[in-house]
C-alpha cells in the first residue's frame, strides 16, 4: 500500500471516529434532556409535612387512595379537602382560602403532575405498594419532611436500569411486557 493511500485511510478512520463520537454525544444530550425533570407551577403552596406530622397524622394512602387500588396513585378532589378540614379557615396562610374558592366554583384544584414516566412505560402503584410491599419514599423520597409544594419531579432518578436491578433483586419478572406498553 502506498503512503498516500495509507494516509487517506487514516484520515477516513479519524473522520469516521469523529462522526461516531459526535453522534454519541448528540444522542447522550438528547437522552439527558429527555430524562431531566420539567419544572411545574402549583396553584397552592401545599405543605406535605404539615399534613403528615403527629398532629394530623395523615398517611400517603389517605389522599392518594389509588395506590391500593390500581396503577394511578391519584389526587384527592377538592371536596375531600373541604369535608375533612377546610370548611372553615385553617392556619394563617392567606392562600388557603383558595381551596374554598375552587370548591364554591365547583372546580378541581389544578394540581400539576410533577412525576412522569415516558409514554411507553407502564407503572402500577398497586403492584409496587400493595403486592411488592414497597414504601412510597423508596421512589418519592421522604414526603413527610417536605414543606414546599412539589415543583420538580421527586422520582427523576428512575431509569430503566433502576427498575430492572430492583426487579432482579426481588425476583420479579424482567419480561419487557411487564413494564412496556
Amino acid at each position: 500500500m502506498s503512503t498516500r493511500n495509507r494516509n487517506r485511510l487514516v484520515v477516513a478512520g479519524f473522520a469516521a471516529l469523529a462522526l461516531f463520537a459526535g453522534g454519541a454525544a448528540f444522542a447522550y444530550s438528547r437522552y439527558k434532556a429527555f430524562m431531566a425533570p420539567v419544572p411545574v407551577t402549583q396553584p397552592l403552596p401545599f405543605n406535605h409535612k404539615h399534613h403528615m406530622d403527629e398532629k394530623l397524622g395523615l398517611t400517603c394512602d389517605a389522599c392518594h387512595k389509588g395506590v391500593n387500588e390500581g396503577p394511578h396513585a391519584g389526587i384527592p378532589s377538592v371536596n375531600t379537602c373541604i369535608k375533612l378540614c377546610h370548611t372553615d379557615p385553617q392556619g394563617t396562610n392567606p392562600e388557603e382560602a383558595k381551596i374554598r374558592e375552587y370548591a364554591a366554583k365547583g372546580e378541581a384544584i389544578p394540581w400539576q403532575q410533577a412525576n412522569r414516566l415516558p409514554g411507553h412505560v407502564y407503572f402500577s402503584h398497586v403492584g409496587h405498594v400493595k403486592f411488592g410491599k414497597m414504601e412510597c419514599k423508596e421512589c418519592h423520597g421522604d414526603m413527610k419532611e417536605r414543606t414546599e409544594p412539589v415543583l420538580l419531579s421527586t422520582t427523576h432518578r428512575l431509569d430503566m436500569d433502576t427498575c430492572m436491578e430492583c426487579h432482579k433483586e426481588k425476583g420479579v419478572s424482567n419480561d419487557c411486557l411487564q413494564c412496556h406498553k
Partner: peptide
C-alpha cells in the same frame, strides 16, 4: 421477541 407467556411482542422504542 417472544415473551414468557408466548406473546410475540415488539418494543417500539
Amino acid at each position: 421477541f417472544q415473551n414468557e407467556e408466548g406473546i410475540v411482542a415488539q418494543i417500539w422504542g
